[in-house]
Design a protein around this nucleic acid. Structure first.
Lengths: 340, 340
DNA sequence: CTGAAAGCGCTTACAG
DNA sequence: CTGAAAGCGCTTACAG
């Protein structure tokens, strides 16, 4: 049994109120003598406050809930994990604990909403919800302080943090176009992800600017996974050479790595025959078969912003708001001018 | 303000005790009529129990703490993340929430011990503590139910789960030896990690069995990181060809990926000139420049075992114990017979 | 079968 | 400056 505030009170001959005042530095002042006595007893007893009791009393656990959903148990999703890493760093700096809620699907996370607002967390960070899930809406209805990473929702009272997907995709597509590519494919992720749609808009905007006609753009919707990239790229590589794209723009690095595998497995070279770009910059550059030209997401800042926005709301210092963070184009070895 | 048990009691004209009995299905029986009334009122009020209040009363939060330490903010450590993923899956299955404690260094996590036992978690899972850290010892002294992943410590009352490092390393080294390699290097990780030492033992055991003399083994201690692998491999490649190793055995995949980069950057081929092996099987096979022959860690099972061992202890159904899980050799494209 | 009461360990108005 | 008391929302012996 760990020592309680009551033990300290008894041992030092004061009331538990006074012990509490000393330990919390308030709300009432305490004379130096008493203060010292209490502190020394607390130290002797190896006292440490019970966070649950304190939380019940204060209605504040200094804990942030993270809702993270993975599609497939066997796939480690590096985007989520990188964001998670950023959030944890920020929690550390802000002295917040974090509770992780995982479920296999977003529908499952939906049912678990009561859990998210059962008092153990003060607020919630949702990573990458799809547009057609109503988790965020339900959280908002329950008035659970919430911030969403990887989507900007119009939801009242919900904060959002994301990178500027349109501008980022325009930049990296522009990089390919500036290299001289004319036939260019876009492999997207799931269409119910806002990022997928925004990135497609950015891609098209860049093509329009470079006056690439629609028919020279192959847009293939799929999933944010390497196997999906592999499969789609294989089909593109089967096209006659004169219509085959010379560049493949992917909406994340996983897709891009699948594409690179598919292209090289057919005996074609990246970037000699086909240029490939990614998005996220999740994996070690050295880990890739061909180091990928990609868009670097500011994972620490994403986490940092999410945490501090949430704390602002929790402390009543701000209302919900949305922020778009800038990204950085990272040029590596998977892009080059088109053949000849 | 969410509804409380008191609101339900008032609305349904019974005492809060009765409400509690109904909601928990005990410990006392309740008549069907009352039961139905209470349940319908609870539903109408959108009631969900406050986990903090319940936790304080029950002294059980159904929450497992995970202590995870990363060395470098800018490096996402895939081993930790994979284990984490396994643990989270297991928590989900066992209806446990999880709280993540991160700190930059193990010394930091040491100071935070009071936090780990402040009531918010029922038990602790420590991922990959080095041998020279006393976190686990302190946890044991405080009688915090603890299970360690990635080390088998002799600590009383602490459970441990790990793979059989010696056997695994013997297997993968044996794979290289069976291919005919005679000059073979071992690049290890940090020497204060138990896994490093055990894997070295396994490596040596395999070499002894194949009668490879000590002088034909280059053992180079370093870090579990790709840059450390890159640097050490570069030096090995500078050796005169007749003493240069034809195979490099790495104690994790990150090191191996650095080695592959170093070897190919010098114009040598993997596995044509040098075979390379890893350990862990963390990254997508397709993500690597050369898909790595490695040892697959059973990440889900590691997490699953850790969680269920901890719950057994928490429920008083078992005492602390240790388990070694089997691994699997995964042969990919980074290994082949030595040149000529 | 139902309820009044004590208790989990803390915080914090309210008195003195 | 110090303390008695109520309260946070729940559980659970203890009576009836």
């Amino acid at each position: 049994m760990p020592a309680t505030i009551r033990d300290i009170a008894r041992e030092s001959g004061v009331s538990i109120s006074t012990v509490s005042y000393v330990l919390n530095g308030g709300p009432k002042p305490v004379s130096t003598g008493v203060k010292e006595r209490v502190i020394s007893v607390a130290k002797r007893l190896g006292y440490h406050p019970n966070a649950v009791a304190r939380g019940l009393s204060r209605r504040r656990m200094d804990t942030l809930g993270i809702i993270y959903t993975y599609w497939d148990v066997n796939t480690t999703d590096f985007y989520f994990l990188s964001v998670l890493h950023g959030i944890l760093g920020a929690c550390m700096r802000h002295k917040q604990a974090s509770t992780l809620f995982t479920s296999r699907h977003w529908e499952e996370s939906d049912e678990a909403v009561p859990q998210y607002s059962d008092g153990r967390c003060d607020g919630i960070i949702v990573i990458g919800p799809p547009e057609d899930c109503n988790l965020v809406q339900v959280l908002a209805e329950r008035k659970v302080p919430t911030v969403v990473i990887n989507a900007v929702l119009g939801q009242q009272n919900v904060s959002c943090v994301d990178v500027d997907n349109v501008a980022s995709m325009k930049t990296i597509t522009g990089h390919l176009l500036a290299l001289g590519h004319k036939r260019i494919a876009l492999l997207t992720g799931e269409q119910n992800m806002q990022s997928c749609n925004l990135r497609t808009i950015g891609f098209n905007a860049a093509c329009d600017e470079f006056r690439i006609p629609i028919s020279d753009r192959h847009i293939v919707v799929g999933r944010y996974r390497s196997d999906s990239g592999y499969e789609r790229a294989s089909r593109l590589m089967d096209l006659p050479e004169e219509v085959r794209p010379t560049a493949i723009c992917c909406t994340n690095d996983a897709i891009a790595s699948g594409v690179i595998a598919a292209v090289t497995d057919r005996g074609l070279r990246v970037p000699g025959d086909v240029s490939v770009t990614g998005f996220d910059d999740v994996a070690d550059a050295t880990m890739c078969r061909v180091p990928i030209t990609t868009i670097r997401q500011p994972f620490s800042r994403l986490g940092g912003e999410a945490v501090s926005m949430l704390l602002q709301v929790l402390n009543g210092n701000a209302v919900a708001s949305s922020t778009l963070l800038p990204t950085e184009l990272v040029v590596r070895s998977s892009t080059a001018p088109p053949p000849q």
